[in-house]
Design a binder for these strands. Structure first.
Length: 98
DNA sequence: GCTTTGACTCTCG
DNA sequence: TCGAGAGCCAAAG
């Protein structure tokens, strides 16, 4: 199992309406490769299963998205997550820490 | 096998 | 509160 595959496995675990951070995922995998987690999301082969759009910065800002940040925000809104100025509202509440 | 790059994070001013 | 700088790790060239 590759590093990126593990990331995708964790992404599948994220429940609907929740988000997580790259740092949390990296720690869960026992590494500090936050940036590689981002790469894994960018190379995500199965988009709908692994919810890469539910992953954000550690400070609650959106970060980036292959199809555009706006699209990412839109998806999050549909999940019931509220955003303000590219930042997650109630970040502590919707944060999923595994 | 060394260098570059990236959807990151932390620290400091 | 916000921006700049430095550090980190894995993957690709």
């Amino acid at each position: 199992m590759k590093f990126q595959e593990k990331v995708w496995e964790l992404l599948k675990e994220i429940p609907k309406g929740r988000v997580t951070t790259y740092g949390i995922i990296a720690r869960k995998l026992g590494t500090k490769a936050y940036r590689s987690v981002g790469n894994a999301c960018h190379n995500n082969p199965y988009f709908p299963i692994a919810a890469c759009y539910r992953v954000v910065y550690n400070n609650g800002s959106i970060g980036g998205f292959a199809s555009g940040v706006k699209n990412k925000i839109n998806l999050l809104k549909k999940e019931g997550i509220k955003l303000k100025n590219n930042k997650i509202e109630n970040f502590e509440k919707v944060l999923f820490k595994f």
